[in-house]
Design a protein around this nucleic acid. Structure first.
Lengths: 369, 369
DNA sequence: CTGAAAGCGCTTACAG
DNA sequence: CTGAAAGCGCTTACAG
């Protein structure tokens, strides 16, 4: 009394589909070679479970039948893992891909993930299409980059109980954080200016709605952990030196018209040095400090893409450098940690920064450095 | 006589796992609410198939039980679609992410895909890990960007019979091509130089091992369709004008030491104008033509990331511009076409280019433009 | 508007 | 070294 279990599906399909042979599956090959389905499975997934010879025969048959290997979707369901890791980028990938640091991070993560056999899927925020990738895409874990805790993708990810790590974001209970040490980098930068002899210092930030207010009156009410960290570092150094900086900021997350206008007004009574929240912001200030509005024409350039912006401009910018590659690696390592032992991996330490002193900073004399 | 089909798995799991409640699935919710599994499925996937009221009750129960929605992996298997599209980048994503055009393309594709409800997964080439994403990642189709036909990912994708489109690659039977019209862009550029009065013209290419040979002696034996197309355009215009250019090239796919050396030697007897295969190559020539080796120091800059490289340098580069966003959109549209009707969608026409004349080209007199 | 049946294609223990 | 059993969690027609 033969149980027809195995044959049913195959013959059923053959019967209903007249012309096409139907999809080739493990079963098809098994029948062809005269072994069971799981032996074929083993031939592909656990070579040590069968003889060299049998495996060779199976693989040959598979090749002849045009079988490309076990179906990834079926395998994912059976194994409970997909080999795919998701990444949520600030807003959508579209925005993030215009930011050098973000692109560098994606690149580093993709590389580290590849080393571990994982692929990276980009998760856009929910859309008109009705699809919410954080909820609907099959994956084994996710990296959330520079997102506010309120971002909806976060909720979806957590509800699925997927392993996640939070990169350059606000701390969240139960989620490992990866990021650079903004505070100490900022501290160093401020210290550098102070050591040069500056005392009339201005701070330019984003994510903070402030129009040229002395820092002492400033409530650090920013939603950006990154900027909060930098503010902390700057203020600590300035406090130690007894300096009260002026602060200019915009509620936006980056440089916008509001910030430009406030910078311009601030420059009417220029400080001798400026601490800015990004290289782009520093450049903006420098351009506005000399012949504003910035002249589009003249541009001399070299260094191309490999060089960071700060090094390509003139005067070259003193800046706080971060190791984006290391950040990508740290994020992947942290995520893999969470994925492997189900318990919480110890949060990796904040990544160090390095102050890179270039031409833009000098002893106080005339223009802001 | 009740068939225990449905209950089996649930109670079995409950029995074996003492502490945890086991995973919450459609079944769990179905039992909780007192309906069948497929009604719960309908509540999530086909809201019109059941009453508002029942649906609300189901969704509430799901929420209470911490159910995040149907498992994507299981859904993918049952539905036969994943919602994920793969992208194979030149070499690995790591390399491609240092190329502005490639990054712009990825960005555009991710955006277009998101509009259609798809997510983008980056497919690295096979690796030590043994994982071959093109073979092992569950997806509904793939975009192959700037790859030689021999790239192994291609074979894997085709063996799986996945819908694919080929972007900026060599034509492959049965695969739609998307790309810019390199030949006509190049033709325009050469025509521009000729119209300016140049006749001593040099061509600088990659993917072609040539050391300062007159074009008439040149066998266009390049593996790069892009470069072949440009050569075609240039040569057509030059032929028409009866001009025989000198050609300098390297077997590498980009600028390397070989090319630099050949450029240097070529410049010992400088042409009055140069046609280069990329903006970077054009810059390289300009730098080498004046005070070579290039001086690292001086750099004045503006325009930041939004501006293409060609516009940021001085003298600003005359260049053939392409619409990377349009290319991304075209690739997605073509792929979706293949995915929807199984038959081959008509290959979209080559995307137009535009000659952007800037400072670097002028009438012949001294240095190469 | 609701559900019983069949199936998606594979893998993981577990016997032999 | 090979295979029978059970299952991964969902969905698609199809009846009622």
């Amino acid at each position: 009394m033969l149980k027809p279990t195995g044959d049913l599906s195959a013959s059923g399909r053959m019967g209903s589909e007249v012309v096409e042979v139907g999809r080739v599956t493990l079963q098809t090959i098994a029948e062809h070679v005269g072994v069971s389905r799981m032996t074929v499975s083993n031939a592909f997934s656990r070579p040590d479970q069968l003889s060299e010879d049998l495996r060779a025969r199976i693989l040959t048959a598979a090749d002849d039948l045009g079988y490309a290997g076990p179906d990834p979707a079926a395998r994912a369901l059976a194994r409970g893992r997909t080999g795919v890791i998701g990444m949520v980028l600030t807003n959508s990938p579209k925005d993030a891909f215009t930011d050098d640091v973000a692109v560098g991070f994606v690149r580093a993560v993709a590389g580290s993930l590849a080393d571990e056999g994982y692929s990276l899927v980009l998760l856009h925020s929910s859309h008109d299409s009705g699809v919410v990738p954080a909820r609907d895409v099959a994956m084994d874990g996710a990296i959330v980059y520079s997102c506010a805790p309120a971002v909806s993708a976060f909720a979806a990810l957590r509800e699925r109980r997927l392993p996640i790590v939070n990169v350059e974001g606000s701390p969240l209970p139960g989620v490992p954080d990866v990021g650079i040490d903004n505070a100490s980098g900022a501290y160093e930068a401020a210290k550098h200016l102070i050591d040069l002899g500056h005392s009339r210092i201005a701070i330019v930030v984003a994510a903070l709605d402030i129009d040229d207010v002395p820092a002492s009156e400033t409530a650090l009410d920013t939603g950006s952990l990154t900027i909060a960290g930098r503010m902390d570092g700057w203020m600590r150094a300035l406090d130690e030196a007894g300096i009260v900086p002026r602060v200019v900021g915009t509620p936006a997350l980056g440089i916008d018209a509001v910030l430009r206008e406030r910078i311009d007004r601030m420059l009417d009574d220029p400080p001798t040095a400026v601490l800015a929240f990004s290289d782009l912001a520093a450049l903006e200030v420098m351009e506005r400090a000399r012949g504003r509005p910035p002249r589009p024409g003249a541009a001399l350039h070299r260094g191309l893409r490999r060089q960071p912006l700060s090094a390509r401009v003139s005067p070259a910018l003193t800046t706080v450098r971060q190791d984006v590659d290391a950040k990508g690696r740290a994020a992947v390592r942290a995520l893999l940690g969470v994925m492997r032992r189900d318990e919480l991996a110890p949060a990796p330490p904040l990544l160090p920064t390095a102050l890179v002193v270039r031409e833009s900073t000098s002893r106080p004399s005339g223009a802001p450095g």
